[in-house]
């Protein structure tokens, strides 16, 4: 479903990704692990289409369609969902307003009927209930004054509503205590399904105990250095990234 071939990317003159090859099938969850500065977040931003990165070589397709040629909102409509490491605050705009605008934006591009206020509210309530959340969060301004855990849960709620083909979770565990992590992971797991692929990007193994991946890839120095099953994550936890020429003793 997601095909990344020989992807090279740089910021300014500095190469960050130096030839990534990755294939993720529908229904699979892949984890990308790697030390700080390995290019993990860059990869997630490139998939979502953030400006500031130059693709120097390679291709990315989703369901056979070129992803790199699309604007961020087109990618969203194509089914790419990025759960941000640091969800952005938008003062004065309620979550409900934001979600409805996003959902209808995506539905419009997909050629689906837009939802009116009542339909939207009904759908949101259902999703909230499925994720064990209250809809109180909908009334508040987007991420403003949210705790770290609330921000991440808000990301999961948005994912549930937008129903993506590919969900990219960028360091979803950062800034979460263990209880919050469990709630968020439960939410993500509830959204796993045969038609959906997930890319879980993380530094630590911790998250992968809750969101168990089918495949684990180690990203370092802009390349995938090693791939394996879920046991690779445990191995990394024990041995660190030293064998990839990365000193993270500190």
């Amino acid at each position: 479903m997601l095909e990344i071939t020989n992807l090279h990317a740089s910021v300014g003159d500095r190469p960050i990704l130096k030839g990534i090859d990755l294939s993720v099938q529908a229904g699979q969850v892949h984890a990308i692990m790697g030390p700080n500065g390995s290019g993990k977040s860059t990869l997630s931003y490139i998939l979502a289409g953030r400006e500031g990165y130059t693709i120097t070589e390679g291709a990315v397709t989703l369901d056979g369609r070129d992803l790199l040629a699309q604007a961020p909102e087109e990618r969203a409509a194509s089914g790419v969902f990025l759960a941000f490491q640091y969800p952005v605050e938008i003062p004065g705009v309620s979550n409900a307003t934001f979600l409805k605008a996003a959902l209808n934006g995506v539905r419009r591009r997909r050629g689906e009927k837009e939802l009116d206020a009542m339909e939207f509210l009904k759908l949101t309530r259902v999703k909230c209930r499925q994720l064990g959340m209250t809809d109180e969060m909908l009334k508040r301004a987007v991420n403003v004054g949210f705790s770290g855990g609330e921000k991440k849960r808000n990301e999961v709620l948005q994912m549930a509503l937008l129903d993506p083909r590919l969900a990219v979770l960028d360091e979803t565990d950062s800034g979460l205590d263990i209880d919050a992590l469990r709630i968020v992971a439960d939410g993500v797991n509830a959204l796993r399904g045969p038609d959906r692929a997930m890319l879980v990007i993380t530094h630590y193994q911790r998250l992968l105990s809750y969101i168990v991946p089918d495949r684990v890839h180690v990203l370092a120095h802009g390349r995938i250095q090693r791939s394996g099953g879920k046991e690779l994550a445990l191995e990394l936890e024990a041995r660190g990234y030293a064998e990839f020429g990365v000193d993270e003793a500190a």
Binding site: V88, I90, V93
Partner: peptide
């Protein structure tokens, strides 16, 4: 309007102009 806000909205499927309109409406809400 921060690039971060714009990108976040667009990642969720809003066009750039819709995103600006949304953010500005939020700015003016008071």
């Amino acid at each position: 309007i921060s690039e971060d806000q714009l990108f976040y909205c667009r990642q969720r499927g809003l066009s750039a102009e819709d995103a600006v309109s949304l953010i500005v409406n939020g700015f003016c809400k008071e």
